[in-house]
Amino acid sequence: MMGIGFSSFDADRNGSQMIVPSKPALGDLPESCVALILEYMDPPQICKLSKLNRTFRSASWADFVWESKLPPNYDALVRRIFEGFPGNLGKRGIYARLCRPNTFDEGNKKVWLDRSTGKLCLSISSKGLSITGIDDRRYWNYIPTEESRFNTIAYLQQIWWFEVDGEVEFPFPAGTYSLFFRLHLGKASKRFGRRVCNTEHVHGWDIKPARFQLWTSDGQYVASQCFLKEPGNWVFYHAGDFVVQNGNESTKIKFSMTQIDCTHTKGGLSLDSVLIYPSEFRKVKPFLRS
Rank of each mutant, 00 (worst) to 15 (best):
N14E: 14
I19N: 06
S22I: 03
K23L: 04
K23I: 01
A25M: 06
A25W: 10
L26P: 10
G27Q: 09
L29Q: 05
L29T: 02
E31A: 05
V34P: 12
V34W: 04
A35Q: 06
K48T: 14
R54M: 09
R54P: 02
P71M: 04
L77Y: 00
G84N: 14
F85C: 08
P86W: 00
L98F: 00
F104N: 09
K109A: 10
D114Q: 07
R115L: 04
R115G: 00
G118I: 02
L129V: 06
I131G: 01
I134C: 10
I134P: 05
Y139M: 11
Y142N: 15
P144S: 13
E146F: 02
R149H: 03
F150I: 05
N151P: 07
Y155Q: 13
F162R: 08
T176P: 10
S178W: 00
S178P: 03
R182S: 07
H184Q: 14
H184W: 08
L185A: 04
S189Y: 09
R194V: 02
R195M: 13
V196I: 14
T199I: 06
F212M: 12
Q213D: 06
L214N: 04
W215F: 12
D218M: 00
F227D: 13
F227M: 12
K229T: 14
E230C: 06
G232E: 12
Y237N: 10
G240W: 03
D241G: 06
K254C: 11
T258Q: 08
Q259N: 13
D261N: 15
S270E: 15
L271A: 03
S279C: 07
R282V: 00
R289N: 15
